[in-house]
Nucleic acid binder design. Structure first.
Lengths: 322, 322
DNA sequence: AATCAAAATGATAGCGCTAACATTTGTCAA
DNA sequence: TTGACAAATGTTAGCGCTATCATTTTGATT
């Protein structure tokens, strides 16, 4: 029992005993059995993380933040990949909860009803990431996708584009909110046209960005700028415009979303909405760790914001930006 | 006891009892406690996966393959991120092994001595991925990085480039082998020059590709082609060449490595060495699952090969390729 | 119906740890 | 020195399963 204490709460054991125990642990190469610990204590050090994709740059950045912050702590990360499916998400939540995790980090506001019920009655800390919204299960760290895309759309209008379009792939709930933001601002400015919206359920790729912009230009050749649902599409769109000899930004403006590193390196560099993915992951893990140590966040919801990074691809006045 | 059997080996229980048990399980919403199971059985259904990076596209593709194949099986994936550090890898192996995993999947051939000892005496299945080499701990699925880069270099020579250079970031063991392959072929053809090798320990980014090629061209302006250690660098290099007005492929050839999806979409499209990352992940998980079910692979080592995909960026004869 | 092996089910103990409480040791003021 | 209290350590039981072996049931064969 004293050994168990020494390993978990060293300050509850006298220094003398602690050293003796440490020496023996070292000599024997003793490692506690987490299964036995979990069984006896009725809880684990596992923090479940459920993301819709492990390949999407957005989530891999978030994951990296989480892993970085978890590194060296007592918390073990257990990753689940819901592949954008609410059903798989539900299964994962069920599986994870059966393991009595200390906490659960999952993406977004939109869970199936069954998942919601599971989460509402779960006896572990829950942290939603990627988005901000009302009524968190417990804690929430993200930003407003609607506002971010509204800001991007406003930027296009300020740059003088009057016939903006929107391309999107795989319309997950966050993509849809971004589309809504675009539509709202475009309508308010009286420049909205449904024919300049091109979407597909296919997963997003650079190649697809080219295809979507080709599709858009054949349907609505008047389009003079696009807001892309993400940076992969933006890059592909840029390549396609170049192939068609469309001058960027003079004849055609391009704005991405997320501001992946490559947007600054592209030629021309591509305007994008920066999101703080790594910070989101780090912050999420920090909040979770704190909450599990009894340190509650000041507010249940944190908005990490966004930032429109203007670059050559929408700098109509001559491309001096960045 | 019969319930335990019914849930794990349904064929050892009569159909009548099985149905009765199923009904009760359903009614009670019973879910087995994996910790208790692990403690009693002395083993788990966990397969540990250790990768050097969760953001690098290469590993995220592999991870996706693993998760896809694990989905729906009884195996649970536990992911660890060694961040290219042998010391963190060692810690992860130690932590994972303390959890009595059914299997361990890890990257590459180069482990620290301590890690090697841990693995050699581990009583779980071990599968190395990403590379092929002699003397596997247990099983191995990958390809030869030396041969792949040799093939790419040969392609550059065949395309008529006579002063090839090489740029690389973050020289992990696999990158180094690729550099070796380049050097070998270049030397044999009498076109090797150490001044045309530019490397940096910094992590690879698209921006960095531009910087490295700028560096290369200032040191060795005669360079007429580059083999890039990966596709991010190749893309960045392409953008930088475009900014400098260097004609691709006429004046300057570019070849990437891995053949990420964007290489085909780029303008010009970029030659790259295709590697079968998703297949590697799937195959790895399939092998592991089989091995744990007593189905041994025919050979301990599988070479998934590679494929040089020639595109515009090295198609000197006029860019008809792809 | 009696016999027997195979199939199905059941009883028992214990996996390695920790919660809860019990006991011992140490510390300080009176 | 003593008592009172806190700090440190120890005792006990049990977490929810599964391995192992024991017993019962089934069904085929004589």
């Amino acid at each position: 029992m004293t050994v168990s204490r020494a390993l978990r709460n060293p300050d509850k054991v006298s220094v003398k005993t602690l050293n003796k125990i440490k020496a023996v642990v070292e000599r024997l190469g003793y490692v506690p059995d987490p299964a036995a610990s979990a069984l006896a204590a009725g809880k684990t050090n596992v923090i479940g993380v459920i993301v819709p994709s492990v390949t999407n740059n957005v989530f891999s950045d978030v994951m990296r933040g989480i892993y970085e912050e978890a590194e060296g702590s007592k918390w073990q990360i257990q990753l689940g990949n819901s592949r954008y499916s609410p059903i798989e998400e539900e299964n994962l939540v069920r599986t994870f909860l059966s393991q009595k995790p200390a906490g659960l980090i999952l993406s977004g506001l939109d869970q199936s009803e069954a998942t919601e019920n599971l989460l509402r009655s779960a006896d572990c800390r829950i942290l939603q990431i990627m988005e901000c919204g009302p009524d968190p299960y417990d804690m929430m760290i993200g930003f407003s996708h609607v506002e971010a895309s509204m800001a991007a759309t406003r930027h296009l209008l300020e740059a003088g584009y009057r016939r903006p379009g929107y391309i999107a792939a795989r319309l997950d709930p966050r993509s849809q909110r971004r589309l809504q933001g675009f539509q709202k601002v475009a309508e308010e400015a009286g420049v909205f046209s449904a024919s300049r919206i091109v979407t597909t359920p296919r997963p997003s790729t650079v190649t697809l960005g080219g295809e979507l912009v080709a599709d858009l230009l054949s349907k609505a050749p008047e389009t003079d700028a696009i807001l892309c649902n993400n940076d992969d599409l933006a890059l592909g769109a840029m390549f396609e415009c170049q192939r068609r000899g469309l001058k960027i930004p003079e004849e055609f403006g391009i704005c991405g979303f997320n501001d992946l590193e490559m947007m600054a390196a592209a030629n021309p560099s591509i305007t994008s909405v920066r999101t703080f993915r790594l910070d989101m992951g780090r912050e999420a893990m920090r909040w979770m760790g704190n909450a599990l140590s009894g340190i509650e966040p000041e507010s249940a919801v944190a908005d990490l914001g966004y930032q429109v990074i203007v670059r050559q691809s929408t700098a109509r006045d001559g491309g001096s930006a960045n």
